[in-house]
Design a protein around this nucleic acid. Structure first.
Length: 570
RNA sequence: GGGCCUGUAGCUCAAUUGGUUAGAGCAGAGCGCUCAUAACGCUUUGGUUGCGGGUUCAAGUCCUGCCGGGCCUACCA
């Protein structure tokens, strides 16, 4: 059995995430983690909240709270929602943890010792009224190119021209609207990514099996213009990891913090320490240090495409540049965006369905199934209520839910609530087993390759095979003339429920648990040989008819939700 | 502007990386079944693979030019 380290891109702290965020990283990561655990592998699945940066400070200010308090609260909110969606993190950490502070400072020290950090003096816009330096996009003004009066300091959204904040006419703070701005000199640390360009390039080139989306973004950044640019890794903010060189002060950097994108990926590592410190495990370094047992770990990261540059370039520079034997990522699974009904999901504009709203409408499994079976793997995909209703009703209620229902109810009415005895498999059963053997192995291949949509399609076909078999076998007719054979057919049907529960658990864990509970097979393991797996429930084994697994979404429900979520979240 | 991705049936997606007659699910039509959440099964209609050239014995796949959609473009994270 292999050991798998899995991390999901860590969600930003400033609010509740929407379904697009969920399907882009945390949900597929959970699918993979659950699958690998199901196969018996040792898994460490980590996620955390990303808590630093200007937006967090502003969100806290807006909420009228100290930023630390705000982040602590929002972390709890996100943790509860993660539980609600059954995200099976081994630990859900915080990038503001003391462990991450220490580790971030440690990495910075190592990188400085290796000559990969340099001081750069630069001029930045400072807002006197806000008493802070403003990131480019927090400065608004009139576009010198097209005259649009709400152009941002990095780019004009109207004419798409890239801008420098000092280009803007009548610049003002996007935070307060103040025009009391001045350009001040400030010193920052830069990570000399350019010095490792060759090493990174060779490394990316060696990853021929990565999704095109991942490697093409990485190569673009490596080769665009003058090649990979160095990157500022410090900011003039209060909230963050104070700039220190390991455990020493960093002269000239007093009062500054590391840039959120420097400390956020390091939290993947620190999170393992948090996991251990929380008493959930031991010896975290055997997951992260190749000199301490991690050389047999396979490390897989999940993220939306916007995160790819940081995971293919900046974080690897941090790891490689440290000169220490930290585990590098083995596979990066990246996703496109999920759109909402003709436009984008938007956190800032409150457009779409958010995690808390989703759970207030329907249980997690409904969302998990739709989102995963429509994961934006090759291109952006789109959520519509019609499609959601159709998929849920057909796949979950009709194909799977109704199968469980018809088998258990038929058995109860004809044989009672125990697996019936008698009869032997014939040609039809042997053919079914052969068909399922091929399908289950195909399902495993897709899951191993993290081909999410293909895996979902195969799983659905496996469910459908049960209905096809029942229809062809017709135990409700056979029982009139040959009760023994009908008993055998019904017994196989009950065993199929057990099989389906195990196979489906990564996608729909709650329903899978209900199914296993109903047939009294809670400890059922991953199927090896299908003939064996489908005889696991012996004659005489008791079961119960479960409640309806999936209720259908009515046209009225759909219309009501469609209307409710047509506007913006307030 | 530059780069990348994408365009296949009414809808959502496949197509073993250049190889028979382009396949699934949904929706539509017909038939069957009656155990089941009016569920299930079988059959079936539906495609000039965005458009035009080119390479090749062979192109959805490669090249090229248009047209459309999307993303990224380094100080939001």
């Amino acid at each position: 059995m292999a050991r798998h380290l899995i991390t999901s891109a860590i969600p930003y702290i400033n609010g509740i995430k929407h379904l697009g965020n969920l399907v882009g990283s945390q949900l597929p990561a959970d699918l993979y983690a659950r699958y690998l655990r199901g196969r018996g592998h040792e898994v460490l699945f980590l996620c955390a909240t990303d808590e630093h940066g200007t937006p967090a400070e502003l969100a806290a200010a807006k909420a009228g709270q100290p930023v630390a308090e705000y982040c602590a609260e929002m972390h709890q909110v996100q943790a509860r929602l993660a539980e609600g969606f059954r995200l099976s993190f081994d630990h859900f950490g915080r990038s503001s943890s003391p462990q991450n502070h220490r580790l971030t400072q440690h990495f910075a020290g190592r990188l400085a010792d290796a000559g990969l950090i340099e001081d750069v003096s630069e001029r930045q816009v400072y807002s006197v009224a806000d008493r802070r330096f403003l990131p480019d996009r927090y400065i608004e003004g009139t576009c010198p190119n097209c005259g649009y009066d709400r152009a941002r300091g990095d780019q004009c959204e109207n004419c798409t021209k890239q801008l420098d904040p000092t280009d803007l006419i009548n610049p003002r703070s996007a935070i307060s609207g103040s025009t009391d701005l001045e350009v001040r000199e400030t010193k920052h640390l830069y990570l000399r990514q350019s010095a490792m360009r060759k090493q990174l390039s060779d490394w990316i080139d060696s990853k021929a099996d990565w999704p095109i989306l991942t490697t093409s973004i990485a190569k673009k950044w490596l080769n665009d213009g003058d090649g990979l640019q160095d990157r500022g890794i410090t900011r003039d903010l209060d909230w963050g990891v104070p700039v220190r060189r390991g455990d020493r002060d960093w002269p000239g950097m007093e009062g500054k913090v590391f840039y959120v994108w420097f400390d956020a990926p390091i939290e993947y590592i620190a999170c393992a320490q948090e996991w251990q410190d929380a008493g959930k495990g031991a010896d975290w370094e055997r997951w992260w240090r190749t000199d301490k047992g991690a050389d047999d770990v396979r490390y897989t990261q999940f993220m939306g495409k916007d995160n790819v540059p940081f995971h293919t370039l900046s974080f690897p520079v941090t790891i490689m540049g440290s000169g220490e034997p930290w585990k590098l990522v083995d596979y990066i699974k990246s996703f496109n965006y999920l759109n909402y009904d003709g436009g984008q999901f938007s956190t800032s504009q409150g457009r779409g369905v958010f995690m808390d709203q989703a759970l207030s409408i329907l249980p997690a499994d409904y969302w998990r199934w739709w989102l995963l079976s429509h994961a934006p793997e090759t291109a952006d995909s789109e959520f519509t209520w019609e499609n959601f209703q159709a998929s849920v009703n057909k796949d979950l209620a009709d194909v799977l839910g109704n199968f469980v229902s018809r088998v258990t109810k038929f058995c109860r009415s004809k044989f009672g609530e125990a697996v019936p005895e008698g009869g032997e498999w014939g040609a039809r059963e042997t053919a079914l087993v052969a068909d399922l053997e091929a399908r289950v192995r195909a399902y495993e291949r897709h899951m191993d390759a993290i081909e999410v949509r293909k895996a979902a399609a195969e799983l659905r076909a496996i469910w459908a095979a049960g209905n096809e078999y029942l229809q062809a076998a017709g135990p409700w007719t056979v029982i009139k003339t040959d009760p023994e054979t009908a008993a055998m057919q019904t017994r196989l049907g009950l065993n199929l429920i057990r099989l389906y529960a195990v196979l489906s658990a990564p996608f729909i864990p709650d329903a899978a648990a209900t199914m296993l509970g109903a047939i009294g097979a809670e400890g059922a393991g991953w199927p090896g040989d299908l003939a064996t797996a489908l005889t696991a429930l012996p004659a005489g084994h008791g079961f119960e008819v479960p409640e309806v697994l999936f209720a259908k979404i009515s046209d009225e429900d759909r219309a009501e939700w469609q209307a409710r979520f047509a506007g913006v979240r307030t």
